[in-house]
Design a protein around this nucleic acid. Structure first.
Lengths: 205, 205
DNA sequence: CCTATTATTAAACATTTGTTTAATTTTAAA
DNA sequence: TTTAAAATTAAACAAATGTTTAATAATAGG
């Protein structure tokens, strides 16, 4: 791994753990085991580093969701199930990154970054919304409040994934082992959210 | 309102908007229109101010939820519906506060405060879990994954309430008016989450 | 009215912050 | 091997941070 990627990796972990402001450039350089000045040399500024991190990975996210939504072979409920599966997968593999972007969505200190994350979230939400509206039109789904559905799919995920200590208190046996490491846990999350969405969408009015 | 409450109010708004670290004591003193030194005089430190804010309001939260859970007059589904209603009410009246404590739950910089918020969340989660397990035992509820249910109730709420810009993009007509101000919006949130939980809990297996 | 406690102020404090500089090393192409 | 560009380093920088100090004002009990 090159120096740039090395710095980005260390920074992402620290941003996820402590937040952007609470993380100092010296924290990052220490963890990455490089000189402090390299951060400004490679990324211009601390904020530029965050921007690079987000830009690098964010673009990959939207592609797959669009793919699913535009696949004419799939029924509406199959699309929803696939999107849930895809989101949970990404959450498990890159949960530090997801924590970082939700921080940016919820705070509004850095205007341009906030706009970037806002567009990602609202874009995906609109896609889910239109899938559900299509299902409602076809009378497959009951007349749910489709604008809320994206938040209902990923809100629970955020709640579970972003606090390790809460996760351990709710799901973990002993105090040290994070349930996220158990191979079955991911399937359990997928199953729960899919079950919830299915019964929400297919329920009689 | 006394000076202390005045400072706490200003601080809470800024902490919610920008986060704890990004908010300076001078930001707070300016908004509250008091001298900077008063923050340390009244609260010892910036962190002491946050701690006081959380301690003051957090205790009120748990009381009502315990009340509901221990009321023998209510069925399990009625309890769930009341807890949802109560949570949404609190979210709408004190959403700056809720944003602050979720920040503390998700970050782990300030150990003792993190423990405080962790106990609040896990405590409430365990209460919801036991209500649902009781419903499952009585064969009223299907065998859902009860440990996830609290997160599924309040996760969507967090997602909607903590980003004003996202809320406007998803629900707002024009760019200026926050849907949170529309009197019907609160009812819409309650209805959506209750519908979701009801159909999740009562669904055939 | 006096006085001792409390509240408020302006100024200064030591640290820490992100960033820059200038010198040095490494890299890679000619 | 030579040489110019890129990468890395240690040191210093100015600005901003939370906090403290010492002086002043306000308050309230006797």
């Amino acid at each position: 791994m090159g120096t740039k990627e090395h710095i980005m990796d260390a920074a992402m972990r620290l941003f996820a753990e402590k937040g952007f402001e609470a993380t100092t450039v010296r924290d990052i350089s220490t963890l990455a085991d490089v000189n402090v000045a390299l951060i400004n040399y490679h990324f211009g500024s601390k904020e530029g580093l965050l921007q690079t991190i987000i830009e690098t990975r964010a673009k990959l996210m939207q592609v797959r969701i669009k793919e699913i939504s535009e696949n004419t072979q799939l029924s509406e409920i199959e699309k929803i199930n696939l999107i849930i599966e895809h989101y949970v997968e990404k959450f498990f593999t890159h949960h530090a990154f997801h924590k970082v972007i939700i921080f940016e969505l919820f705070s509004s200190s850095r205007e341009s970054l906030h706009q970037d994350t806002l567009n990602i979230f609202s874009g995906n939400s609109k896609i889910v919304e239109s899938i559900i509206n299509s299902g409602i039109k076809k009378k497959i789904f009951s007349e749910v409040d489709s604008a809320f559905c994206f938040s209902s799919m990923i809100g629970p995920m955020h709640h579970i994934m972003h606090s390790k200590t809460l996760r351990i208190k709710l799901f973990g046996g002993d105090k040290e082992t994070d349930p996220i490491l158990e191979p079955l846990f991911k399937q359990r999350v997928i199953k729960h959210i899919q079950h919830m969405m299915k019964n929400h969408l297919l329920a009689e009015k």
